[in-house]
Write a protein that binds this DNA or RNA. Structure first.
Lengths: 216, 216
DNA sequence: GTCTATATTCTGATAGAC
DNA sequence: GTCTATCAGAATATAGAC
């Protein structure tokens, strides 16, 4: 009864893709909790249900796994970084952005933590990214903020520091989850907690910028 | 010419105290950059200029060093957590608190990073702290905020989430320093950068809470 | 492509001389 | 109290059978 013939339409690399995805997912969780050195290849392989040697076969070495995880996270970021324009209403644009950031902390907490740990370590593997893609994205946003301010659409607030406030406030719910849980007396953070978080952040940021809440 | 006699008034434990301090300082930097597993006892000993065996002599094992670092950080926190009272003016109290938090990020970035990494790892060594000291401190603050709101001194804003905003915004300058440096085109963060940060955070938070800036 | 067995290096920890 | 020498264990990585 044992059959070695391929079942279903065979696509080369299908197993590979599936295995790589499982390894990537397991590695993200491991790096988030234990850090780069603390996460062992054995634990990653076990969590992904593949032999340890296969992890080396797919990603060459530990650094290969880690950079793959980081690149995957940077890819996810692109989906969050919506493209604002000068013609957008600042209140609506900021609300959308804050909502998206809070939602990212809810749906991808482990990715947020890996990114945060890399930053805390001095971001040695994100230098190119920070100097290239990120620098461009940031400068474009700062220009839009300044245009809004010059047009009198919002208060004169340092755009870079304002962005830091939004990032820090929203990422806090993924990165400092133990403290947040303890503060809210919650075993795990529910949708309602993130809704309350988004509401408060939007409320304070918008009014703090001299903007009216767009829609409740 | 070699002398083995003690020079100066001999105090038992003087060398010990000095060595422990050096080890603690070196360990803080190592844990901040490389995490618990990534920081080796050898590197800590080298940075502290003591033989590796002495680190074990003073702190028993690696976990002993780490918990000593954490306890030292929690001690530093106490100095930042000023005691607000219901009779304080919310604007002045919040300004003081934000200034103190930003100053902590400037003067103790590595301590902030060790604390952040512990949080990102799930805070396994901070459970008692979170449930005891921190819980009490937080509940007292929340009560004060609610009293301010009930007295009409500030807008009705969820106090816990407001505190998260302040923490996230201020700690960001220590924890995400690489990103901040890149954004501000600064090789290292100067006093002026932190002044601008504090100004923006106070500006947005206070106005966002319906408060007038206390003093420029 | 998959997996077992092994080589090599490094780390935490300690024994024991001084 | 201080430090050198060393041990036991674990981790990354690879060789090679299947």
């Amino acid at each position: 009864m044992s059959r070695t013939a391929p079942r279903g339409p065979y696509k080369p690399g299908r197993i590979r893709q599936k295995s790589e995805q499982r390894i990537l997912s397991a590695a993200t969780a491991a790096f988030a909790q234990h850090g780069f050195t603390g996460a062992s290849m054995q634990s990653i392989a076990d969590a992904a249900s593949v032999p340890k040697a296969n992890v080396h076969y797919y990603f060459k070495n530990k650094l290969g796994v880690y950079t793959a995880v980081l690149e995957n996270i940077l890819g996810l970021w692109d989906t969050v970084l919506n493209d604002l324009t000068i013609n957008d209403d600042p209140a609506i644009a900021l609300c959308r952005y804050i909502d998206a950031k809070i939602d990212f902390s809810r749906t991808h907490p482990e990715e947020s933590r890996v990114f945060a740990k890399e930053m805390l370590s001095g971001a040695p593997h994100l230098q190119e990214f920070l100097e290239a893609d990120y620098g461009q994205w940031l400068d474009a946003r700062l220009t839009i903020f300044r245009a809004w301010i010059d047009a009198g659409k919002m208060d004169a607030i340092d755009p870079a520091h304002l962005l830091f406030m939004i990032w820090g406030s929203t990422q806090h719910y993924a990165d400092f989850a133990p403290q947040v849980k303890q503060s809210l007396h919650a075993e795990i953070l529910q949708q309602a907690h993130f809704d309350a978080a988004a509401k408060t952040v939007k409320q304070v940021i918008l009014k703090g910028c001299g903007l009216a809440i767009a829609s409740p």
